[in-house]
């Protein structure tokens, strides 16, 4: 039976939510979107109906947040609660209906990224936990973990430093490189803490797209087969120790997709 982190929202029948909720977490530029774009067709190929969602994609607050990031300044608490509103709207209007219909919901980030960002901005982690206690506990959380030294070249050679991803609101007047280092290091610290508290499956994201994809396939296949999440936490599973199940073996289609992704990555 599905559970929340503490509070159940009005009119929510947890027993009806029979689908699977799978979360891909990780910091900016780590490759979450690339993986989701591979996972969705792979799951659909296997006959699962898939819905994907992510931060600021709510009908209610998504546009407002995006506009806010373009220049207007919101206070830290205001910003945090704006994101919480966006999350609640997506939970009610996207995630819950899909789970009720038996879909696999793939979410690009979840409450963990939101809590990590707000904690780095000085808000109380205990308070954030309580605010987000209405969130559903996912069936699996895959954390694409990377160190800041490995992250920097990726960001520099792809899209460059972004104002918010560099935490420039926290370090005004500094250069983006210094700010990015500090901000992302602090974020990674928060993610590591959450990975332990919430039993994330940690995936080493310094590897190539293909190997990360295979690890995700293995993990998601286990989750869909109804295997319980490991009770141990915080330790990155070594790729060699990960059993590759039959069902998770890449199909020719996904192979092609991986090659395409890699090629696109090289081209940019």
């Amino acid at each position: 039976m599905r559970e929340t982190y503490g509070v159940v929202l009005p009119a929510m029948k947890l027993g009806d939510l029979t689908g699977k909720l799978v979360v891909i977490e990780g910091t900016d530029g780590v490759g979450r979107t690339t993986q989701i774009n591979l996972l969705k067709p792979w799951l659909e190929h296997q006959g699962h109906a898939v819905v994907d969602t992510g931060i600021t994609r709510s009908n209610l607050a998504g546009k407002g947040i995006k506009r806010a990031k373009k220049g207007h300044t919101l206070g830290r608490i205001t910003q945090t609660l704006f994101y919480a509103t966006d999350f609640a709207d997506r939970l009610i209007n996207q995630i819950v209906p899909a789970l009720r219909a038996g879909f696999v919901v793939l979410t690009d980030r979840y409450i963990y990224s939101l809590m990590a960002r707000a904690s780095v901005r000085g808000l109380d982690p205990e308070w954030l936990r309580k605010i987000y206690s209405f969130a559903l506990i996912p069936d699996a959380v895959f954390y694409l973990r990377i160190g800041v030294d490995d992250l920097i070249p990726r960001v520099v050679f792809s899209r460059g430093f972004d104002f918010w991803e560099s935490g420039m609101d926290l370090h005004p007047g500094e250069d983006m490189y210094e700010s990015f280092r500090k901000y992302q290091s602090a974020l990674l610290g928060q993610f590591d803490r959450l990975a332990e508290e919430d039993r994330f499956t940690v995936i080493d994201a310094t590897g190539d797209i293909r190997s990360i994809f295979e690890q995700l396939q293995t993990g998601i296949a286990a989750c869909l087969n109804g295997e319980e999440r490991s009770k141990e936490s915080g330790v990155a599973p070594q790729p060699s120790a990960t059993p590759v199940s039959e069902s998770a073996a890449p199909t020719p289609e996904t192979d092609a997709a991986v090659r395409e992704e890699v090629a696109v990555g090289k081209a940019t």
Binding site: L9, P10, A11, N59, L60, A61, L74, G75, R76, I77, T78, T80, L81, F82, A84, T85, A88, D89, L91, I92, F134
Partner: peptide, 22 residues
Amino acid sequence: RMLVPSTFSLIHATDFADRVEH
């Protein structure tokens, strides 16, 4: 009429936070 109890609550809290902070 897009608001349900949780989003009604959160969007008003967001509004109030802005008023408190600024």
